[in-house]
Amino acid sequence: MTIGVFLPEGTEARICTEIAARQQMGINKYGTTVAENPLSLREWLVHAKQEALDQAIYLQRAIEEIDAREARRHG
């Protein structure tokens, strides 16, 4: 078994840094962590659904931008 100190680097480390920053932003905004938040399971699911819908909108907007660039390029 190897035990050592691993310095964060790469894509995974950047994502972990973003997660930590979002956690702090949430604590600052809502005064609590996700683990301590008293929402019901249904409320969590509704919130997650709303986030997923937002993500779909962002993805569609990006796809449309790519399509428009391609159309201008091949125009």
Rank of each mutant, 00 (worst) to 15 (best):
L53Y: 12
P38I: 04
E36V: 06
A68F: 05
A52W: 08
W44C: 02
A21G: 01
I63E: 06
S40N: 03
I66V: 15
I66G: 10
I66W: 07
E64Y: 09
Y30E: 04
T33S: 00
I63A: 15
N37K: 04
A52K: 09
L59T: 15
I27F: 05
D67H: 04
E43C: 03
Y30G: 03
A48N: 07
D54A: 05
V46P: 03
E36P: 05
Q24H: 04
E36K: 11
K29C: 02
A56S: 13
Q55G: 14
A35R: 07
L53G: 11
D54V: 10
R61T: 12
E51T: 11
D67V: 10
M25D: 13
R22E: 09
L39C: 12
T33Y: 00
R61W: 09
W44L: 06
E51M: 07
V34N: 07
Y58G: 07
Q24E: 06
R22N: 08
A48K: 05
E51Y: 07
T32V: 10
A52V: 10
L41Q: 11
A20F: 00
Q60S: 15
A68H: 03
T32Y: 02
A62C: 15
W44A: 05
A21S: 03
A21T: 02
Q50E: 14
A21D: 03
I19L: 03
T33H: 00
A56R: 05
L45Y: 11
R42C: 15
L41W: 12
E36Y: 05
D54E: 15
R22F: 10
I57R: 01
E64S: 13
H47D: 07
Y30S: 01
T32I: 06
